[in-house]
Design a protein around this nucleic acid. Structure first.
Lengths: 200, 200, 200, 200
DNA sequence: TATGAATGAGTCTTCATTCAT
DNA sequence: AATGAATGAAGACTCATTCAT
């Protein structure tokens, strides 16, 4: 029943893109509930009405932004690996790079990250998108790892553990915790987990 | 500026409690943003005005509920251990019970859990409460574990890993994953992590 | 922060004007505090929301009305004089016309007058507008009077005395006062005050 | 139909008085509409309910305060004259003292004054009280003046003119006005007005 | 005589969405 | 394809007043 349409003219496509880009950024920065559609339209140099020709509703804009940018925000480590196969020898270095990259990215997009997490809890559709992202991230990463009957589960755990560690370090900051140690312990566990996957 | 007061009469105390209990439940079930103060007042059989005599605003009710119930919802494993000291021998059993308990609790309070997570991302004050809860949970659990220079960090990781595993199992449910294996792998890692802490 | 906009279309301009006109009248008639924004919207055949697109709040409407109509209400005598220079010979007649005009106007807009006075005491911004109006009235009147080093102060006193007299007559109505005499006395004083300003 | 009663016990009388005194001061300081009945009760160390045993409503408190204190606030000049009869010789000095006294008093009670004026415009009953006060002030002052068929009207004008001058000086402060001159002009006019009233 | 808990109608204000142009 | 004016339901919050005790 919603009557949205796809832009055909080049200039229209740009407008739709602008709504997503600027709207998503705005919502991430200020919080979904603190940004109105008029705000978005104004910021994107577009009329309010136009928004409802390209999107069903406000959430739809956020969802579109999520589809485009969530993976980059949530799983920055993906961009690290090229074709390089992971071996017992190079893994420690790669893992540390992954952590560093994740820390950097999360620090930069702290607000976006929080907003994405919050929204994914509120809306089921968004939550599905997140799951998909997570799965894609796993699949992508998988390519660089050696074969093993349960390599998929292991990589998934790896992603979770890295993510967790970074959250711990960036957001929580309980005084009295030795985060240095926590990182080393996490690394140790991950390496232990993968120990039986290396060929030979 | 906010002019809230504390109930003195017993019947008033009950009313305030009712507002917290019923309001918090309502917000967890339907989502914070989908419940109005009038809804809460109605459900708690109380006038709208009274809410504003006991609370600053809607968020204040949610926060009060969080303080009271978040620990039970988020860290159900705490209620498991009595005085029993953890040893190399009994840990496997205990850990499996922890996971089971967490799974059960999260399943029951799925919505509350999501809403709490979402809100903690949105409001800094709530986030602080969560951090505190997490810390308290760690401290409490700590008492049952053997001494070790970094036992605190280890227990914290343990909590995170259990929590993560349960999320994975309950919320994500990617098809094609062997969650049984994932659980065993997590258990193996945790036990490995604690291996060097047991006395003797 | 307040995100008000200016109407562009002609029909929109009319709506904004209607809000001011009808709203201001309503508030003057029933009293500022006895009229809600919904009342104004209804009376102006406009939605509540529209009010907040053109005005910051209720007071803003009243202020707008004040800017437009206060001078006419408070200093009706201004409209009397054309280019006619005041002389010792014509002044008595003119002064009596001023008084008559002021009496008539105040009688017509009794409520508005009271409300304006009341509000100007409550809100500093409004008070400033009134001061400005008063000053403008003085300046305007000044043009018709002969030069004199302190003609400005004299004209200001003149305005005040006329205003006062009219208040006395219209609002107070103490029994036992000879208002006829009071008027003549006031006229005598004013004429005496201006005696030394006439050329030659 | 309102069911208010008079306090009988001494301690009750004090309470009622406290409500008037503290309530009236509060309303004058912060503005009638910015003070709630709960505020008044709290400040007067009295329960909310008690207010409605001694007063019909909120306005009633303000009215009571007005009856008690308005004259002192609005016509401070009254306290100046004892039995001293006014003569051509001493009047200039007395008039200047009146002006000074009025200026001082108004400066001290600027807010109260504004609030009283504002309220008297809004409520007819209050307006009547003000009129009465004004009349009483005239009558009182009258005793010190020589007899004259229209001395009443003259004294009334005198009061008005002094009041007006003081308003002008305290509240308006238009730049570019010579208030010194305005005062002297006012004095000159008043003295001129009274010239024909002195005996002999 | 006094309390203060409780009421609930009423106010301002916001904003996602629609619609005439 | 685009505009931006307009809607109006819904929300948070206040406060004079009542009432059970």
């Amino acid at each position: 029943m919603p009557n949205i349409r796809e832009p055909i003219k080049e200039s229209s496509k740009e407008k739709k893109q602008r709504i997503i880009d600027i709207g998503f950024k705005l919502m991430c920065d200020k919080g979904y509930h603190n940004v109105s559609c008029v705000d978005i339209a104004t910021a994107a140099h577009v009329s309010t009405g136009l928004i409802y020709q390209y999107f069903n509703d406000k959430l739809d804009i956020f969802t579109s932004g999520t589809k485009l940018y969530a993976q980059k925000i949530m799983f920055p480590m993906l961009e690290l690996l090229g074709n390089e196969k992971i071996t017992r020898e190079n893994f420690d270095k790669i893992l540390r790079e992954m952590i560093k990259k994740t820390l950097d990215a999360h620090t930069l997009t702290k607000n976006a990250h929080k907003e994405l997490m919050s929204m994914s809890c509120l809306d089921n559709h968004l939550f599905q998108i997140f799951n998909l992202n997570e799965e894609e991230a796993t699949e992508k990463l998988l390519l660089n790892f050696p074969h093993h009957p349960h390599i998929k589960e292991k990589v998934h755990l790896l992603i979770n553990m890295v993510d967790n560690l970074c959250h711990e370090i960036i957001y929580h900051q309980h005084p009295g915790y030795d985060y240095e140690y926590m990182q080393e312990e996490t690394i140790k566990l991950i390496e232990y987990m993968l120990e039986d996957t290396y060929e030979n």
